[in-house]
């Protein structure tokens, strides 16, 4: 009788622990984000000071979303002109990628075992006109960089037209620079 009681106890512990680990692992697999955080992004060494500042400001936006420090601009810069390049480094590049094409893209490499983003390269297509002054004939550098860093962190597009993660951008539009509640909800879901 005593042996049976101990056996039931041990079995209960094993089943409970397995269930707990399994549930946590399943949650982890189904919540795709960047891993490990914080991520570091490396800017092209030919970017203007204004563009480098826009990258730094974009990182700060996501770090203030309420889920801790998720992404930093690294002091190490690169000289790459192609993207994406699979090199274990999150590189931000620019290039004349032509039209019709993305204004900016983020190419993410996902580990198929963990379902986590392990590398993300951001590219600015300068075949389109860009500026950081909100002028009507240009697409905004800061707002669209903020959008792309959201993708690096694992966010998808949203249907909320006011959010940073809305899929398209118009010339002169600067509202993507500041993340909205919809964007914060996504980050909190992935990282909190």
């Amino acid at each position: 009788m005593q042996v049976k009681k101990w056996g039931m106890g041990i079995l209960t512990i094993i089943m409970g622990t397995s269930l707990g680990v399994g549930a946590a692992h399943a949650w982890s697999l189904n919540s795709r984000g960047y891993s490990p955080v914080p991520a570091y992004v490396h800017a092209y060494n030919g970017f203007s000071a204004e563009t480098k500042q826009a990258i730094s400001t974009a990182c700060s936006q996501w770090n203030n979303a309420g889920a801790g420090n998720l992404v930093y601009q690294s002091s190490f810069e690169h000289s790459l002109t192609n993207s994406p390049v699979q090199n274990n480094s999150n590189d931000i590049t620019r290039g004349f990628r032509g039209t019709p094409n993305y204004l900016m893209i983020t190419s993410t490499l996902v580990n198929s075992t963990t379902n986590k983003i392990v590398e993300a390269d951001l590219d600015i297509n300068v075949s389109y006109p860009f500026a950081n002054d909100g002028s009507s004939g240009n697409y905004d550098i800061g707002g669209n960089i903020t959008h792309e860093i959201g993708h690096l962190l694992g966010l998808e597009h949203t249907t909320d037209t006011e959010a940073t993660m809305y899929s398209s951008s118009q010339m002169g539009e600067t509202k993507k620079r500041t993340i909205e509640q919809d964007d914060k909800n996504g980050i909190l879901f992935l990282y909190k």
Binding site: P36, V37, P38, A39, Y40, S74, F76, P84, Q86, N88, S89, N90, P100, Y102, L103, M104, I105, T106, S107, T108, L109, V110, N111, S112, T113, V118, E119, Y128, Y139, N144, H147, E148, H151, E156, H157, S167, S168, S169, Q170, K176
Partner: peptide
């Protein structure tokens, strides 16, 4: 695992396994 990573984290890449390159971005409306 995260705590033991020092300085800039180096992402792991498993080239022998199936890779999915996901490209997302903002497009001109």
């Amino acid at each position: 695992t995260a705590i033991t990573t020092t300085s800039a984290p180096v992402p792991e890449v498993q080239t022998s396994q199936p890779n999915t390159i996901v490209v997302k971005g903002v497009i001109a409306a």
